[in-house]
Design a binder for these strands. Structure first.
Length: 231
DNA sequence: ACCCAGGGTCATA
DNA sequence: TATGACCATGGG
């Protein structure tokens, strides 16, 4: 966040905190990952893979209406039925299997009551071992459901910070995550707020590659609010 | 009609 | 390690 005056620094290793301030100034604080329970967060994390959140909302509403938003209900459900309920979230056959895989693992480990005591690193490895749970999904669950200080990297993060020139954008997931976590104090609340701001902002940032030098985080930038522009 | 969205897995080189 | 194909709906 703020650099200690005496801390050694190689040039440009403190951008994460500064950008956070800028985004906060522009967009203000916002509550994020709307959900009524930890389990709903976990389900949402899987359903939102490469999918607009509005489509996920409908799927979750369907699960609730069918009284199916629970570990046991999902494990016991017929795949066709489950797939039908989450149809709006896209990739419904794949995601139905992923939900089941996750829930079988989750129940098998004793649920939140047991998993809450696992160290973050072990929990991440276990989550990544669930078929259908990758880096981002695992970290979504760690941050938003388990309240662990994990910085989530998504397509918006790569785009926004790639355009700012702080990263290339194509680095491996854990490399970018490490960069953020090393620059910021380890607070889940801040990480969650930051991720929300990045997503909010990312929707208005030009997507052209290679990045345009004139595209900045300033709302006054002539490319702000345009998804695409030449060069 | 085209492009994109809060990814992940698998086959291939 | 690094591409490409595939999964699929809904909104702009």
């Amino acid at each position: 966040m703020r650099a200690h005056p005496d801390s050694p620094r190689s040039s440009g290793d403190r951008w994460a905190g500064q950008v956070y301030r800028m985004l906060l100034d522009q967009h203000g604080t916002r509550k994020w990952w709307p959900a009524e329970s930890r389990f709903e967060v976990m389900v949402g994390a899987i359903l939102t893979q490469n999918t607009a959140w509005t489509n996920v909302e409908k799927a979750i509403a369907n699960l609730k209406a069918a009284d199916m938003l629970g570990v046991n209900a999902i494990v016991q459900a017929e795949q066709e039925v489950l797939a039908g309920l989450i149809r709006s979230s896209g990739y419904f056959n794949v995601k139905a299997r992923r939900l089941r895989n996750f829930c079988e693992w989750y129940a098998g480990q004793g649920g939140y009551g047991k998993l809450r005591y696992w160290p973050t690193a072990r929990l991440r490895q276990a989550l990544l071992g669930v078929h259908g749970v990758g880096h981002e999904t695992a970290d979504d669950i760690l941050l938003y459901a388990f309240n662990r200080p994990v910085f989530v990297i998504d397509a918006y993060t790569r785009r926004v910070f790639g355009r700012l020139g702080h990263i290339g954008g194509d680095e491996p997931y854990d490399e970018i995550r490490a960069a953020f976590e090393q620059q910021l104090t380890s607070r889940p609340r801040v990480f969650a707020e930051y991720h929300a701001l990045i997503v909010q902002h990312g929707k208005h940032v030009c997507q052209s590659r290679p990045r345009c030098e004139a595209c900045t985080l300033n709302a006054g930038c002539r490319f702000y609010n345009s998804n695409r522009h030449s060069q």
